[in-house]
């Protein structure tokens, strides 16, 4: 049952599930003794998960031959940006208390914050130019080149995650392994497209 519009709706609503549960947990005091830290870490994890999901769309589309999967790429990428915005906002409010001097000072002593901010700043132009109108305005080739920035942003985000860990690097290592596979897939020399008839 191929129904792209319905599938899009399903992915959209599912992407909001973590946010809904996070809000529920926060309002029911179910985030443990340090709820602000939990909010910070969970939104950060979600940003990376959605970034990896958005990067998984193209390999999945090519491997399955289901071209309509590309519908999800933009949405998942925008959700990655959305959760990253929340992550940054939580950091700015609870940790820097909206004081830019504190934020700047934190960046000096916390090198990994620079990487996190870099990942966010790289995603800003991508989010702005994510519309079909912008693809037309920029031209497909130019747009594609610009959006290759997501690879750099993902590497920066995962490195930021890795450096933020005190000792147990199992989670960032998993994220890095997934990212490695997703990026390596893109580096593999492209085979000639299989004729449509041959696929059946």
């Amino acid at each position: 049952m191929k129904d792209p519009e319905f599938a899009k709706r399903v992915v959209f609503l599912n992407s909001l599930v973590p946010l809904a549960i996070l809000i529920w947990d926060k309002s029911h005091d179910q985030l443990g003794a340090n709820p602000n830290e939990a909010l910070l870490h969970k939104t950060g994890n979600l940003a990376i998960i959605f970034l990896l999901l958005s990067l998984a769309v193209t390999p999945l589309r090519k491997l399955t031959g289901k071209n309509w999967y590309s519908l999800f790429r933009k949405m998942l990428g925008l959700f990655a940006f959305f959760y990253m915005c929340l992550h940054l906002l939580i950091y700015l409010s609870f940790y820097s208390e909206f004081d830019l001097r504190k934020f700047a000072a934190a960046m000096v002593s916390n090198k990994f914050i620079i990487l996190g901010l870099a990942a966010f700043l790289m995603l800003v132009p991508l989010a702005i130019t994510s519309t079909n109108g912008m693809i037309k305005r920029l031209g497909a080739a130019k747009w594609k080149r610009l959006h290759q920035l997501v690879y750099v942003a993902a590497i920066a985000a995962v490195t930021h995650f890795w450096m933020s860990q005190k000792r147990d690097i199992s989670k960032p290592a998993l994220a890095a392994a997934v990212l490695f596979v997703l990026l390596a897939y893109r580096l593999v020399p492209k085979r000639k497209p299989v004729p449509v008839a041959a696929k059946i």
Partner: peptide, 23 residues
Amino acid sequence: GVLAASLLATGGVYRLLNPVRHR
């Protein structure tokens, strides 16, 4: 049904990875 099942599955996975921490 598909939508509800998918939402439950996503919520379930999220909850598995992020257990409730009562205080």
